[in-house]
């Protein structure tokens, strides 16, 4: 009895989580106007890919897709190197002011990103970087959260491994590249997923910094498209599907790493 109740609640919640997506995918496969009916249709009468064709042939969605891929992959690769080096230094080196420096960095996490955006916009404007990929990659190069995550992970790795490599005569950079990075692989994957998804899904900063249509990332293009096509339910649903498919695929294929990362980040509290 208790079990049945538990399962019905869990299944109902699962339906509530998925139903909007089911409707979204289904509406994206309908012909113009077929989603604007009462009562609503949950399955298309006849499956058509006309909305997707329209997106890629007339609305230049491939370009936005490419922009999103470039900035998300760019931020992920660059920040992975920079954060892992810093995380390694905090985990395995002792130097003056180490603890207070780390605490200072952690305290930055409370500052909302919006505070930095106005001066950052001006800075990048004077550097001539508005409407370039670098305008998104540069501010994303280092993250306190990333440094924190890597440090926590590396703290658990025994110092003796590193000492042994040193006795064998390896220098600091060789140790970082050929010992620390391979050892840290699971957390690097976790951080890569976090960074990729956060950059892919980000909206406010790309909205500010990409003012030229051809440089829009998918979320910016989507919001812009909504202005002109707010009655074209089927088309908007197709563009939403295109936007979320990559993150959903990344998540589904690497979900274990992602979930672990949240738990590791949450332990801090």
């Amino acid at each position: 009895m208790k079990k049945a109740l538990l399962y019905s609640i869990l299944i109902l919640a699962a339906i509530l989580c998925l139903l909007p997506f089911v409707w979204m995918i289904s509406a994206s496969l309908m012909a113009n106007g077929h989603a604007n009916v009462y009562p609503p249709r949950f399955l298309p009468d006849k499956v058509t890919f006309i909305q997707y064709k329209h997106l890629f042939s007339r609305l230049n969605v491939f370009r936005y897709f490419l922009n999103s891929v470039v900035v998300s992959v760019g931020v992920t690769i660059v920040s992975l190197f920079i954060n892992s080096m810093a995380g390694y230094a905090f985990a395995k080196y002792r130097f003056a002011g180490e603890k207070s420096l780390f605490k200072l960095l952690l305290s930055f996490m409370i500052v909302p990103a919006q505070v930095t955006m106005l001066p950052l916009f001006l800075m990048l404007k004077y550097m001539g970087l508005i409407n370039t990929y670098l305008a998104i990659i540069i501010p994303g190069m280092a993250s306190v959260f990333g440094i924190f995550l890597i440090r926590q992970y590396l703290l658990a790795i025994p110092d003796s491994l590193i000492e042994a490599a040193k006795i064998d005569g390896a220098n600091d950079f060789k140790i970082y590249f050929s010992l620390v990075l391979p050892l840290a692989k699971p957390i690097l994957i976790t951080l890569a997923i976090f960074t990729f998804m956060a950059t892919w899904n980000d909206f406010l900063w790309p909205l500010i910094i990409m003012t030229n249509d051809s440089m829009y990332t998918l979320p910016v293009a989507l919001a812009n498209l909504m202005g002109e096509h707010n009655q074209d339910t089927e088309l908007m649903m197709a563009s939403s599907v295109v936007t979320i498919i990559p993150v959903v695929l990344v998540f589904l294929s690497l979900q274990k790493y992602y979930i672990k990362g949240i738990m590791l980040g949450g332990v801090k509290g």
Partner: peptide, 25 residues
């Protein structure tokens, strides 16, 4: 399943819910 909404793009999901909230359809 419960985690699915978390990973999806906020802008896309906001557009989706705009249609879910449509008073007519």
């Amino acid at each position: 399943v419960y985690f699915m909404p978390v990973v999806t793009t906020l802008v896309a999901v906001s557009i989706l819910w705009r249609f879910i909230y449509n008073p007519q359809f």
